[in-house]
Design a protein around this nucleic acid. Structure first.
Lengths: 189, 189
DNA sequence: TTGATTTTGTGACAAATGTCTCAGCTTATT
DNA sequence: AATAAGCTGAGACATTTGTCACAAAATCAA
């Protein structure tokens, strides 16, 4: 749990009392590789703080899977749209490795937010982090070509290259695996 | 101001008292075409509710301008990253037409949020809307090719095609204006 | 209106990417 | 170890997109 408390305190001031209070909204949950944290069609009622392992969000369109995001240790995975609006999720969140997570229950969290301003502020900051991340993602697509996108990821999120397979990364970058393979080849020589 | 109140109440429950309280954070501001609502390097301390006209966000890289978003009537324009983090903006927000806006002052807003839970909730919902919009933007780049992106915009945001020029739209879609021109030609025949 | 500026459409060609295919290499499972 | 399954690298070819050039159309300012 210490990781989570550090994470929270990197976002906002958070008293020991708030931390105590927050416990009632938290449960530990483990996932095996390829397990679903969230399935398409479900309503997202959780935030998943990741203690170990990593996962990805993926759309399934006409049988083919497209990865739209990866979530690593010390980050929160969720479908912010579904979580906020109560509408069904359009995509899956899947464990790429065995994962250990701490689950925030939405109803409990909203209940606590009414009692504790620090918890409400925490929620707002989590959402803002998500908004920033999404903005960054759309930015790299609008501003950069494929090679520049790859270099941006290489520089900004080196763990992507270490932990994510070529095929998965290609899907994330919005190109075929062959194209990504060519880019790598070009950069070696 | 009625437009704004309706907008707010479409997001969250908002009492007349909260509305009264909110007034102290609001000012009217007009922009001429090509005026900056926010300039690169500035810290964003405002939310701009748009009563009339529309604007765009644009990065300037090596002298060329790339549009990353458009903001129309009854929406809020801001740099959510800079607004939330206090870091300088990496891009401009520019008026594409003469604009009439209602400006939320950040400091006043934060001050009021401490007094009124409804105002704090409003802020959280605004951020969530932004996160959703950004998620949608990155989604259409990762899932769709150029023609599909164009068709998605055509279907989902028809006012884009009516009000935004081809060159601006091409930049937004992440292709050259020639490519967008070809797609339009293909679709007519 | 006139003239200047910007925007758009188009063609030719080059470059990038997608599609299809196959072979070699890991990894997982038994 | 043996097998199966998935992942990667590579080539050939088709398609898409970018780049450059120029003309037509639309917009703007005097």
């Amino acid at each position: 749990m210490d990781n989570l408390l550090n994470y929270i305190r990197s976002l906002t001031t958070f008293s020991d009392e708030s931390w105590e209070l927050l416990q009632s909204a938290l449960t530990n949950k483990e996932f095996k590789k390829a397990d679903f944290l969230l399935q398409e069609g479900e309503i997202c009622n959780s935030l998943f703080y990741i203690n170990k392992g990593f996962g990805k969000s993926q759309y399934e369109i006409d049988g083919t899977i497209k990865n739209t995001g990866f979530f690593f240790e010390n980050e929160i995975a969720t479908n912010i749209n579904s979580f906020g609006s109560g509408l069904p999720s359009e995509y899956n969140i899947v464990a790429c490795e065995p994962m250990e997570t701490i689950v925030f229950d939405k109803n409990q969290l909203f209940h606590l937010a009414k009692q504790s301003r620090e918890i409400e502020t925490l929620g707002r900051n989590c959402i803002r982090l998500f908004a920033s991340k999404q903005e960054e993602l759309s930015k790299i697509h609008q501003l950069y070509n494929t090679q520049e996108r790859y270099e941006y990821i290489e520089k900004t999120y080196p763990q992507f290259l270490q932990r994510v397979s070529l095929s998965q990364l290609a899907s994330f970058l919005g190109v075929t695996r062959e194209t990504l393979s060519r880019i790598r080849k070009k950069r070696i020589s």
